[in-house]
């Protein structure tokens, strides 16, 4: 509570915040929710249950002079049978496509998600390809056959270069590179986000149902 009001206090002096909708995509158990948990509350859970009950989180991220407020949408498992709703992609300005560097199948799935994003999401979406669970290969020696690593850095980088994506290897467990992903995306988001063509009057006349207010409520009932 106190933290919140402090936040608001600070906000009134800070430059305007850019809100960015960020969606997560990737095979089950690659660590999507764990990356969010690390980023949002700097925490990690060893045996994290599949995502339940908290698939909409917000977190601010300061990059130089700017503050970006991420509205983070986790998949909530709807991707399991390819049943993600169009709503999920709608107006997403950023996406994390996550795979597990110890699971080659998850990398193949990542390619599929990149393709899907190009088809479904808006043209100017910023996508980061993220190879997670780096901690599992940290002590590996190069060329060691028993290595847990199944997807090389080069393969990841190559896909990213081909498709114009940011690329990171991360560990939600040790926090390695996690902030960098969100800072990296933030610095690629345009300063004043261009209004989507299908969204001609971005904020005009929208109403906030939870507070019951409209920006231009004129007059009263008869």
């Amino acid at each position: 509570m106190e933290l919140k009001s402090y936040d608001k206090y600070r906000m009134s002096f800070a430059p305007p915040t850019t809100s960015v909708k960020l969606v997560l995509l990737g095979e089950a158990a690659v660590g999507k929710s764990s990356l969010v948990l690390r980023f949002v509350s700097n925490d990690f859970q060893e045996n994290k249950e599949p995502t339940i009950g908290a698939a909409f989180l917000t977190q601010k991220c300061t990059i130089g002079e700017r503050t970006i407020k991420y509205e983070i949408w986790d998949t909530a498992g709807q991707e399991r049978f390819a049943s993600l709703a169009p709503m999920y992609y709608r107006n997403a300005q950023a996406a994390l496509v996550v795979y597990d560097i110890t699971k080659p199948a998850s990398f193949i799935k990542a390619r599929h998600w990149v393709k899907e994003l190009h088809e479904q999401a808006s043209k100017d979406i910023t996508i980061a390809l993220v190879g997670n669970k780096h901690d599992l290969v940290e002590d590996d020696n190069d060329g060691d056959d028993s290595s847990l690593r199944k997807v090389s850095i080069e393969e990841g980088q190559k896909l990213a270069d081909e498709e114009g994506l940011l690329f990171f290897e991360t560990s939600a467990k040790t926090a390695y590179n996690v902030n960098e992903v969100f800072v990296g995306i933030g610095s690629k988001i345009p300063e004043a986000p261009l209004l989507k063509p299908q969204q001609p009057q971005a904020t005009d006349g929208r109403i906030d149902l939870s507070t019951g207010t409209a920006p231009a409520a004129d007059g009263c009932a008869c």
Partner: peptide
């Protein structure tokens, strides 16, 4: 889905 529901379209 957020509360654990499973979805199968098509």
């Amino acid at each position: 889905a957020i509360y654990g529901g499973t979805y199968m379209l098509d």
